[in-house]
Nucleic acid binder design. Structure first.
Length: 899
RNA sequence: GGGCGGAUAGCUCAGCUGGAAGAGCAUCGGCCUUACAAGCCGGAGGUCACAGGUUCGAGCCCUGUUCCGCCUACCA
């Protein structure tokens, strides 16, 4: 098989080996800075910018399928846009992920028997940086494996120096604009992490709990109220009992006082329409310090706030002495016990409800009153809301509603965290005069009295720095060329799970500080789940590791799989089998390229013919289809229909280029006509090379590897090739129709052969009557008779109007032309008769349906004329086919009857 | 409680503005045909969840119902 005279034949190994190819090209792309654009090409060079900032993965993270999908889609867009001549900047980077990273390092310390307090703030932070240096790049290396065409020279970290400047600038400006304030407020508190959490950092999980009914006696002895609660221990901090103002059961009590059991204080009965009369007893105890809603009620009713649980989850000095120092759970038990002893516990029932948990450590969240920093979001949210969809389009648009919903109900954003790893709040308090100083540069002494200063201990919520990502990564607050050239970014690609956390906040910050939205489009993709549709998680053990898949099947297989499945609404159920399946496709491409290379001119040169020299059905058809595929891939990419890109290319390459074109081209390539051979080589090389360009955004590695050995290619850097030029002159509906007819004829012979169990190697005679098809049918068949012989294994063909085969033939009707495969002495005709019966049955079914439609009242009158005409033509075709099939059936039957 | 998504071939899913249902995988039969057995050729397989409605015509639009999933919320 090997042909030493033709070096091209040996240029590609027999099977595609991804590992070596990926390592080689990955390194090349990075070393040559292929993907590092110069802002000047936008600012003065007239190129259009296209920019994306990567959703920065947590430094603690490892690459999972969600990243793989997210990065694949972005890479497709970036590589495609480069082909379109844009100046493409794709900024990579990582997020410092405050609480998550701090927890990782704390766990590490714990193994050494230490706590963070043992090290102290500075040492601890040093320790986290060390950790970050050692492990923080791991995820970036994993991103490289995916072939991401990011600009590695532009890489950023949310805690690096430049971004810290941006964070300080934003904080200080917002503070002085009155949009950041410090205040006492009830926040979600994690006793384990010892920090406040934003509303959206709290996850709600169903838990089995109990609903306790407790009797509170009225102080004047006129009766009592029974309240319902799931947390009896909080009653120690109760300041009121609330009932619905129109609840007749309780009108008598409104305004009176009750005596708080176990504590003995007098607290009022108040009326508020918030209370649900249907729930529990209709009487609600109010504990402002330990319940979000009670906090809100207490504010409207001017009630005091009494905290009885401290920031570690222990009962504090405000609780009666008997309970002080107990954990909240121990306290609950004791309170229940004591109430039962007093006969005040009316009932305890099982009660399922949802409980807030820390999204990092899963501890139960304790609403807790403390002094925190907040962003006043209302004005920012308003602008962010109005920008969609006019300035920023969310794709798919269904997510707009979710986005609005969240912005409409947004509360002030608690941005302070009581941890150490993060951006420390740039605010100082004077120890002498109490002055609060907020500024970007560290002050040395109080600007007012010269006293010494103490900086805030708290750091900012991680999302505060992430919210600045689209402009901080471009150099802001400096007025850089990058910022001028690439802001606003073109699109943000992300999963819907962080639409709130992140996207909405970037919108707010971007609009506020750049006066422009941070991105023109937001493309929301699905989440990757396992085969059963469950979330992949380490604890469930259902994780499909992208790196493992890359190792087994190659990056291109994984990328193509994810692309093909990207259309899913909300989740992608991924299984290893699919990735394995698409590896076959990669191999198919590889082998089609090997075939092409084996058939290039000897000596490794390119064919000399022009495309316009190409004649023949196969050449003209594949060029026609190539034009259509260019259109399809382009429009699908521009519209974020990633699955359509994959489908269009898959079908074209496998079902058309390989299955039909290559098989048909063999006739020319193996033939003696040198002119025809060279013209076909030209078409073959053109279609292959342009298809590689089209496919490159999805499968960068295998396409580049093949590209680099194609003959006659000047620029070996496939990633920098322009999108293939259009050749509208090759589009032809006539060619498409002729090809369909040709395929029908070949197919019908193949079907007869297989269905009648004829030896595939047996060459058969063929007779075709082209009376109905006319000159065109005759021409198509006559011109391509050698191809029919080749593809359908025919020994001799007799084609023309009025031709008829022997009665003992396998038969079919293709677009009016009658096909005969004389079979006398070859097979048992009973099988053919059965087959014809079946075919007739199918035709009958179709005819009945079509006739029904055409004769339906009003169809002819109401349907558009072109539809009616089309349906009638279809009917005529079917009736013709039916008549011919019936006749053929009769002929065969009579032949059989005669024996 | 509010909102969203899904229900199409055995499995996983396509089906863009309504014109007689498609793919991949799996399955069955036949092939080692000189790019590829990770392949080639052929076959079988569906009252598009259910009930109404609009329309000449509905997988697609409208209403309701049932199941599944997700997001969100202040039933203590």
């Amino acid at each position: 098989m090997s042909n030493p005279a033709n070096p091209a034949e040996n240029a590609l190994p027999k099977g595609y080996e991804p590992a070596d190819v990926e390592a080689r090209w990955g390194k090349h792309w990075e070393d040559s800075k292929t993907f590092s654009p110069d802002p000047a090409e936008v600012l003065t060079g007239g190129k259009q910018p296209y920019s994306i900032v990567i959703p920065p993965p947590n430094v603690t993270g490892a690459l999972h399928m969600g990243h793989a999908l997210n990065i694949t889609l972005q890479d497709i867009l970036c590589r495609f846009m480069r082909q379109q001549g844009k100046s493409v900047l794709w900024v990579p980077g990582t997020d410092h992920a405050g609480i998550a990273t701090q927890n990782v390092v704390e766990r590490q310390l714990k193994k050494e028997g230490k706590k963070r307090d043992d090290l102290g703030r500075e040492k601890f932070i040093e320790r986290v940086w060390e950790w970050k240096k050692e492990y923080g790049d791991r995820i970036l290396h994993q991103i490289r494996r995916l072939g991401a065409s990011v600009d590695w020279t532009a890489e950023r970290f949310t805690l690096d120096e430049g971004l810290s400047r941006a964070v300080r600038e934003v904080f200080v400006r917002l503070f002085h604009e009155g949009l950041i304030y410090k205040g006492n407020y009830i926040v979600n508190w994690c006793n384990r992490c010892h920090t406040a959490l934003a509303d959206d950092e709290v996850e709600h999980a169903p838990r089995k709990g109990k609903l306790y009914q407790i009797r509170y006696p009225l102080s004047d002895g006129s009766g009592d109220l029974v309240v319902a609660t799931t947390r009896p221990e909080t009653m120690l901090g109760d300041v009121a009992v609330a009932v619905h103002p129109e609840d007749e059961r309780y009108t008598f009590a409104i305004g009176k006082m009750v005596t708080l059991p176990l504590v003995g204080t007098q607290i009022p009965v108040i009326a508020d329409a918030y209370v649900d009369r249907e729930f529990g007893t209709g009487a609600l105890k109010i504990t402002p310090a330990h319940d979000m809603n009670d906090w809100a009620l207490a504010r409207t009713h001017n009630l005091p706030v009494i905290a009885v649980i401290d920031d570690k989850g222990l009962m504090n000095e405000n609780a009666p002495a008997a309970y002080q120092g107990l954990t909240k759970n121990a306290c609950r038990d004791k309170v229940v016990e004591d109430l039962e002893a007093l006969g005040l516990m009316v009932g305890i029932a099982d009660h399922d409800h949802s409980v807030g948990e820390c999204y990092r450590c899963k501890s139960v969240i304790e609403p807790h009153v403390s002094e925190q920093w907040f962003v006043k979001v209302a004005p920012l949210a308003k602008a962010a809301r109005e920008a969609v969809p006019s300035q920023t389009r969310i794709v798919p648009a269904q997510w707009e509603k979710t986005y609005y919903e969240w912005l409409d109900n947004i509360r002030d954003w608690c941005i302070s965290r009581q941890i150490w790893w993060g951006h420390r709040i740039p605010a100082w308090t004077c120890e002498a005069c109490g002055e609060l100083i907020v500024q970007t540069e560290d002050p040395t002494s109080c600007t007012k009295c010269g006293g010494s200063l103490t900086q805030e201990d708290d750091v900012l919520d991680t999302w505060f720095s992430s919210a600045l990502w689209p402009f901080s990564t471009l150099g802001w607050p400096a007025d850089t060329d990058k910022l001028k050239a690439y802001y606003p970014t073109s699109v943000l690609v992300t999963g819907f799970d962080i639409l709130f956390f992140w996207v909405a906040r970037m919108m707010m910050m971007g609009i506020h500080f750049q006066e422009q939205v941070p991105f023109h489009h937001v493309y929301i993709h699905a989440l990757v789940r396992d085969e059963q549709g469950k979330k992949m998680s380490k604890s469930t053990g259902n994780v499909i590791d992208p790196l493992e898949m890359i190792g087994k099947y190659g990056t291109d297989s994984l990328r193509f799989t994810l692309t093909a499945f990207a259309a899913m609404g909300r989740d992608i159920k991924l299984s290893e089998k699919r990735i394995e399946g698409y590896r076959h496709f990669v191999n198919k491409i590889w082998n089609s390229a090997r075939f092409a290379l084996m058939n290039m001119p000897e000596g490794g040169g390119a064919p000399k013919a022009e495309l316009s020299d190409a004649t023949g059905l196969a050449n003209r058809w594949i060029l026609h289809r190539l034009e259509e595929v260019k259109d399809e891939v382009e429009s699908a990419t521009l519209e974020y229909r990633f699955n359509d890109i994959a489908q269009s290319l898959y079908r074209f390459i496998w079902n058309e280029f390989c299955d039909w074109y290559l098989e048909m081209a063999k006739g020319d390539l193996y033939g003696a006509d040198e002119g025809l051979k060279d013209a076909t080589r030209k078409v073959l090389l053109t279609v292959l090379s342009e298809t590689l360009v089209l496919l490159h955004p999805v499968m960068p590695f295998v396409t580049q590897e093949i590209w680099s050995v194609l003959p006659g290619i000047k620029d070996r850097e496939l990633a920098l090739q322009p999108y293939p030029e259009r050749r509208p002159q090759f589009k032809s509906a006539d060619i498409a129709r002729d090809m369909a007819f040709f395929q029908g004829v070949v197919g019908s012979v193949r079907t007869i052969r297989t269905e009648l169990c004829i030896d595939p190697a047996k060459k058969l005679p063929l007779i075709i009557d082209t009376t109905s098809g006319g000159d065109n049918a005759l021409r198509v068949l006559a011109e391509n008779v050698y191809l029919i012989q080749q593809l359908a294994r025919i020994e001799s063909a007799d084609i023309g109007p009025g031709k008829t085969g022997p009665r003992a033939s396998g038969t079919a009707v293709v677009e009016g032309s009658r096909i005969f495969v004389p079979l006398k002495g070859i097979v048992d005709f009973g099988a053919e008769l059965t087959r014809l019966d079946k075919e007739l049955g199918k035709l009958d079914k179709q005819l009945a349906a079509l006739k029904g439609k055409l004769s339906a009242p009003g169809f002819a009158g109401n349907a558009p004329a072109e539809i009616v005409a089309a349906e009638q033509a279809k009917l005529a075709g079917l009736e013709d086919a039916k008549a011919k099939m019936a006749e053929l059936h009769e002929r065969l039957k009579s032949a059989l009857d005669e024996g």
